[in-house]
């Protein structure tokens, strides 16, 4: 059984069909990379997997650990072990990052959080991400720089330890040092149980990861799947020559 299995997915936004006939499978412990030209529907795909209400599934199904989650509420998907690192995380005033993560962990695990151990773990992970401690008591993402927002996403991922983490351009807009720190965070998360689906324009974040598959999303479906070398091919010659190629 695959961890995530998407079958023949058709998705529309405001009556425009964005994805049509998309298939994708991710196994336990695997790292998959999703590439594609701008506007191909990469963000549509990951938002649909997470259950964003703006994206309407017209047909097809999404299974997570064999369970049909195509129409499951967003929070139930999170509880099942899905996580999305947002491209532009929302700012939510009035709730601190720390208390938000605590509430979130409490809900996702269904276990009461032990305060002292939690605090210690949070401090340690923030330290690893080179985040100053004061961010814990600041309102969720409010006034954070682009880089701090992305670190806040990775921090949440590390604290929630989901089964599948989807990173939507987590490395974009970051300087070299921040990319390195975020990449190290991702590497810490990855183990033989946890899986990743990474949307990126940058190979830096993949440097320390073993990539199991690379997919190219074009014309509403997966146009090509290959191994790591596909990334280099595309970096050299772009997506253009792929569009005529038959889907794999």
């Amino acid at each position: 059984m695959q961890l995530l299995e998407i079958k023949n997915l058709k998705v529309s936004v405001d009556d425009n069909v964005i994805l049509d006939g998309l298939n994708l499978s991710i196994g336990k412990g695997e790292v998959h990379v999703l590439l594609g030209p701008n506007g191909a529907g990469k963000s549509t795909l990951v938002n649909t997997i997470m259950g964003h209400p703006q994206y309407h599934v017209e047909s097809g199904s999404i299974y997570f650990e064999g369970k049909d989650i195509t129409h499951a509420p967003v929070n139930e998907r999170a509880k099942a072990g899905l996580f999305l690192s947002f491209q532009n995380p929302e700012e939510v005033p009035g709730i601190s990052l720390e208390s938000f993560i605590r509430t979130s962990r409490n809900t996702v695990t269904g276990q009461p959080v032990k305060l002292f151990a939690f605090k210690k773990e949070l401090r340690q992970k923030m330290d690893e991400l080179n985040m100053s401690e004061e961010y814990a008591s600041r309102y969720l993402n409010v006034g954070f720089s682009g880089g701090e927002k992305k670190k806040s996403e990775i921090l949440q991922m590390l604290m929630l330890n989901p089964k599948l983490a989807i990173l939507d351009e987590t490395d974009s807009g970051l300087d070299v040092d921040a990319v390195r720190i975020v990449s190290q965070g991702v590497e810490k998360y990855k183990n033989s149980d946890n899986s990743l689906l990474i949307i990126t324009h940058n190979t830096k974040i993949l440097e320390y990861l073993q990539v199991d598959a690379v997919h190219v999303l074009m014309d509403g479906k997966i146009a090509k799947t290959g191994d790591r070398t596909l990334i280099d091919q595309i970096n050299e010659s772009g997506f253009q020559h792929l569009s005529a190629a038959p889907a794999v």
Partner: peptide
């Protein structure tokens, strides 16, 4: 959507936003 993607129910997410606003 953001708050729900972290496991929080829709009602709790709204309450969190309004409480946070106030």
């Amino acid at each position: 959507f953001y708050l729900m993607s972290r496991g929080i129910s829709e009602d709790d997410a709204k309450a969190m936003i309004v409480t946070g606003f106030a």
